[in-house]
């Protein structure tokens, strides 16, 4: 007997019919389970939100007044005909994989995840399951990340070389996650300034107890001598950037592995909050899943790769 799937794809996003909830929906739905606070996973307009206690403050900070509830990592909760629990995904602070169980059958929706540890977020936890819905943002064998310490060393060297010339170092990063990972990894090396949007999220995480170094929000005043400024790419296109004085711009992202993406930045650092090719493969293997669905990025090639390894795999988007 074939059993009905625990998770299906709908126009609003992933949906669990037996629990009557969506996972990271983009269209308006009554009940949303949210893996983490990035805007392509946590959108406005849902009836209720459920996410980890650690993810909730940033989601509230970004979405304003919402009906939301937090849940502890590992805490089992019955929703309709399924049992749900959230487990660390190692992507950003509070990020989770969502485990769904029905009568011994286990499905896991990975959300975004990173298997390698960093200085900031809860480390990825491998879960056994029958069906794994994995993200494949970097699901090609050209993506192999260096250890975080090596990349932080490269950034520190760039920062110090700029500082020696009296030039500020402006590092472009997402305001939530990457920005704080950078300040945590570069703490103690010199003054760190932030764009107000970055500072807002940082302050929320600091109040939660995440270990983050002191930072100095920059209004329309120049940064102190030798400072590192963490800003979003949008900020650099605004008037805010005019007050920076002499500066060099660097970018930190997994996409910086590609020369075409490095064009236009004076310094590029390959630092990702997603799993690389070995990480994705190791994660799939660790689940023991017989069936894998792929989402985001290289869904087709990664699914085909898994089929070539003898798994049942299919691209979802």
């Amino acid at each position: 007997m074939t059993r009905a799937p625990l998770v299906i794809q709908t126009p609003q996003g992933l949906f669990c019919p037996d629990g009557d909830f969506h996972i990271d929906p983009m269209g308006r739905v009554p009940r949303a389970l949210i893996t983490h606070g990035h805007s392509d996973h946590a959108a406005r307009g849902m009836g209720t939100y459920l996410c980890t206690h650690q993810a909730l403050p940033v989601i509230r900070h970004r979405l304003g007044k919402i009906a939301a509830e937090g849940i502890a990592y590992g805490e089992a909760r019955q929703i309709g005909g399924v049992t749900v629990s959230f487990h660390p995904a190692g992507h950003v602070p509070g990020s989770a994989q969502i485990r769904i169980e029905r009568g011994g059958e286990v499905w896991v929706a990975s959300g975004d995840y990173k298997t390698a540890p960093d200085a900031l977020c809860e480390p990825f936890e491998a879960l056994r399951c029958h069906t794994f819905l994995t993200e494949t943002t970097f699901g090609l064998p050209i993506f192999h990340w260096q250890r975080e310490a090596e990349v932080m060393g490269q950034i520190a060297a760039w920062w110090q070389a700029n500082a020696a010339r009296g030039v500020a170092s402006v590092l472009l990063a997402y305001s939530f996650g990457k920005a704080q990972r950078l300040m945590a990894g570069l703490a103690g090396l010199g003054p760190i300034c932030t764009h107000p949007v970055v500072e807002g999220v940082t302050e929320v995480l600091r109040r939660q107890g995440y270990r983050l170094p002191p930072t100095m929000p920059l209004g329309n005043t120049p940064p102190p001598q030798g400072a590192l400024v963490i800003a979003t790419p949008n900020a650099m296109a605004s008037d805010w950037a005019l007050a920076l004085g002499p500066h060099q711009v660097g970018a930190a992202s997994g996409w910086m592995a590609l020369a075409a993406r490095r064009k236009g930045t004076s310094a590029a650092f390959v630092l990702s909050d997603h799993a690389d090719w070995p990480g994705l493969n190791a994660a799939v293997t660790a689940t023991g899943a017989e069936q894998v669905y792929t989402l985001h990025g290289s869904t087709g090639p990664f699914a085909q790769w898994l089929r070539a390894q003898g798994l049942s795999a299919q691209a979802l988007s």
Partner: peptide, 12 residues
């Protein structure tokens, strides 16, 4: 495998 090389060439 060749299909992965093809996929990689689209990105790189």
């Amino acid at each position: 495998p060749a299909f992965l090389i093809e996929a990689c060439l689209k990105t790189c």
